[in-house]
């Protein structure tokens, strides 16, 4: 089952309401009451209702580490992101003013469904609710060698689109060889497979839960393969993971994104 969250203005209503829906095989949205809504009538939200800790992995694909001229890490490079970064499918994300290089990162996200500490690798998958796709944008201009990748690079508003939905783990099955692609304005710019992940989901659940309690709504973004490309306002970027989903994001300028708050 695919679980999504959307804003919807029903007939006779003045304000958008948040709805938890499922997505059927035709791509229509179905409410808890069984009402079918067309995708064109809604605004997609992050599928994680109460986002917890957002873990993200750096340099977790062997080919990407080589692309950035890094040795593959011996221990996972984990960083945290704020929930302010999350936005939904088909939403805007912004390119900050006065920068040279902003790139997308198509990533498989494992979402925690059950609280646990000191979880073994063997039991790890029992704690996963399902998967989604995120686009973990980075602003390379802002990298500094303190808590790298620092929050100014990785924790900006809107720069972690996620979705379109959370799909139950049973519906995906084996995640050890899923194809990932990114298309920018229709052109294939990034291609890889989760086979090249260095530290896999069971390893990461064991590793993180040895440090801290994992809770429902926590997310692990598992890193990205090679294929970096700069983004510009006007670009449409689609991150897709086989069996999970395709996440579309529209790049806008900082001024357009913030509007009156700019």
């Amino acid at each position: 089952m695919k679980h999504a969250r959307v804003l919807y203005k029903g007939e006779g209503q003045h304000n958008d309401v948040e709805l938890d829906v499922t997505v059927n095989d035709q791509g229509d949205l179905v409410t808890a009451e069984g009402t079918v809504i067309s995708e064109s009538e809604v605004t997609w939200l992050s599928p994680i209702k109460n986002p917890g800790t957002i873990f993200a992995l750096g340099l977790n694909y062997a080919d990407h580490a080589a692309e950035l001229a890094f040795e593959p890490p011996k221990e996972p490079l984990v960083f945290l992101k704020g929930a302010n970064t999350l936005t939904g499918h088909k939403q805007n994300a912004y390119r900050p003013d006065n920068i040279e290089f902003q790139h997308y990162e198509c990533e498989l996200v494992a979402v925690i469904g059950k609280e646990g500490k000191n979880i073994s690798r063997e039991d790890a998958m029992d704690y996963i609710a399902g998967y989604t796709v995120c686009n973990d944008f980075a602003i390379r201009d802002h990298l500094e060698n303190y808590y790298r990748p620092n929050l100014r690079v990785k924790s900006r508003d809107s720069l972690c689109p996620i979705g379109p939905w959370l799909i139950d783990k049973e519906d995906v099955g084996d995640i050890s060889d899923l194809r990932l692609t990114t298309h920018v304005n229709g052109e294939l710019t990034q291609e890889g497979t989760t086979k090249d992940i260095i530290f896999d989901v069971p390893f990461l659940v064991e590793y993180l839960s040895k440090i801290m309690t994992l809770k429902p709504g926590d997310m692990i973004a598992t890193g990205t393969p090679k294929g970096l490309k700069d983004m510009q306002p006007g670009d449409t970027v689609v991150c897709e993971i086989e069996k999970v989903g395709a996440l579309t994001t529209y790049i806008v300028s900082e001024q357009e994104f913030y509007g009156d708050k700019y």
Binding site: G52, T53, L80, G82, Y147, N150, L151, L214, K215
Partner: peptide, 12 residues
């Protein structure tokens, strides 16, 4: 560092 050095203490 040229910018504030920031880290999160997460909800746990």
């Amino acid at each position: 560092p040229t910018q504030p050095v920031l880290y999160f203490k997460p909800h746990n």
